[in-house]
Amino acid sequence: MKFIHISDVYLGAVPDADQVWGQTRARELWDSFIRVIDDCNRERVDLLLISGNLFARQPIKREIEELNKHLDRLERTQVVITAGSLDYIREGSLYVHNSWADHVHFVESSTVQCVDIGFLGVKVWGLSYDRPVIRERLFDDVVVSSGDDYNILLISGMDGEHCPADRRMLSTAGFDYVGIGRAGQADIREREKNAICGSLEPVNSDDDGRHGYVLGEIMDGRTTLSLVPIAKREYKDIDLVVSGGEDAADVSRRLRDMISLNGNNNIYTVFVSGQVADAGALLEELKRCGNVIKVTFADALSADIDRMKASHQGDIIERFITLLENDEDEHAGEALGVGLMALGENNTRK
């Protein structure tokens, strides 16, 4: 039996809403979901599992209609959907009021229930969130039913505030697959028959790495899993070392080249180190070089403090280092760096 597992699709969200690419990203979330539907048809997938946060908030009528439209295009795939901590089922939720097609099984229950898809020979276990935080351990007592059917468990979150559970324990509970829905990067453990599928598309700069869906197959008691990366963009880091002779235009040119090399579509956090005269002006220039979400300037000085102390015995540099190197103030390290840099700049004999 072939299946695709996704979670944290965040339809309806506008990632990086304050940036120029924000609205495009919002549409790209839908595009990636549509790609999953297309892949279900192309790969002749039997089961599509969506474990939480299909939407970033409660879906509205128009969004549910669009969802129905896309799910209706599935040619042979059964769908099981659970709600997560963001799109949890509230009073009047359109998840509950929607007339789902026959091949779509929405789990309304807030306790673990079983969706029995008899003709496929599979039982899918899971629950939908009815509040944003669930601290109770609701999955500890889930027992795999006997029989020939495949058993799949879906769980969203699996951390302290969101359905806490022991991953290892779940992997030994007898399920043919445990699908964990959580934002961030995927983490596939094929031997343990479980996977965190991660979000389909990254939505902030902490979400680096590859994103996509988990494609799995259960056959003769064996489960194979792989990540299919389909995300349209990645969040990446770039290190820029500025040398003394470079002005903002030079640095910008270099950054543009690096962005071009790494993909103009991706979204970048730039770490700048080296000799930066005017960080403020450089920041503005760099932000214009492409999809640059953040620019961070490294601390002022990374020098061999001991050597500096030794070679400046008796003078201000030695005294300054002595005063700060054992200071417990949280800013002492950085104060040492900027102070030494200032002293260095005002040392006529370097």
Binding site: L324, E330, E334, L336, A342, L343
Partner: peptide, 21 residues
Amino acid sequence: KDKIAAYRLAMQKLFEAAEEI
């Protein structure tokens, strides 16, 4: 603000070090 605090601390310690000398 952290950086500004670091600058302030550096200025203060520089002053102290200069006084010591």
